[in-house]
Amino acid sequence: MTARGRITDPLRAGGITLTVIAVLAVLGIWRTPYDPTAFAVRLRLAAPTLAHPFGTDEFGRDVLSRVLAGAHLSLAIGFGAMLVSLLLGVPLGLLAAFDRGWLGAAIMRAADLAISLPPILLGLLILAVTPPSLGKTILAVGLVYVPIMVRLARAVALGLLEEDFVQAARARGEGAVSILVREILPNAWPPIIVECGLRVTFAILLGASLSFLGLGPQPPSSEWGLMIAESRQFLDQAPWLALAPGLCLCALLVAVNATGEGLRARLDPSHG
């Protein structure tokens, strides 16, 4: 059967695409074909040409250069938010699994509460009150996913605590830290990594939506969601303004999604 080939394909294809995008994004911080902030009045809203493959915007800025210069922002929001939820959520979840007293209960009630807000609202609320910036977008998107991580980490740890090999460790008189480090963590990471892989897609989506609403990095930044928002006035005259960052964003999201799904197929065979 081709099952094996099919399962590994999205992981490889997604991983390669993602790596290429990441390399371009990092390069784009320092080097782009043109200065992404340089105005060129005579070249306003120029259609794509060989010299400007993605055309120029209303200030005559090279869209390709702007897309490249903004690429790292989407990646930063996606992976940064995932890291935030990971670093906050996993320790809290593990604590809730190990502590059967008031602390564990309090953590879980707080997670229940946070999860009862629709995802985008929490982000909107946080970003509405304080001036938006990249860091705050990352934090807001990350916080949205913290309760999901808390629940997942707790459920995984609770399941593992019931396993016989943990009982065997207790029969050796191992302490909580040793059980956590030697027995729980080595087995807990696959489902957590899988969840992270899937979360990055949603984090990039949510981050781009917030930017699109003006609650992310501010102009003259070339964050892709923001670029698409700014392009709306010129849809008739210069569709490339929307298409260039939009298609790049889609490519990134499909690549991340493929990688996440590929990881899941690899690490969690119980899901088709």
Partner: peptide, 18 residues
């Protein structure tokens, strides 16, 4: 499904308007 999940709705909106 794989592709549609990954496309942001505001981009669908832009494409639809276009």
């Amino acid at each position: 499904q794989f592709v549609f999940i990954a496309v942001p709705d505001f981009f669908w909106a832009i494409l639809g308007v276009m």
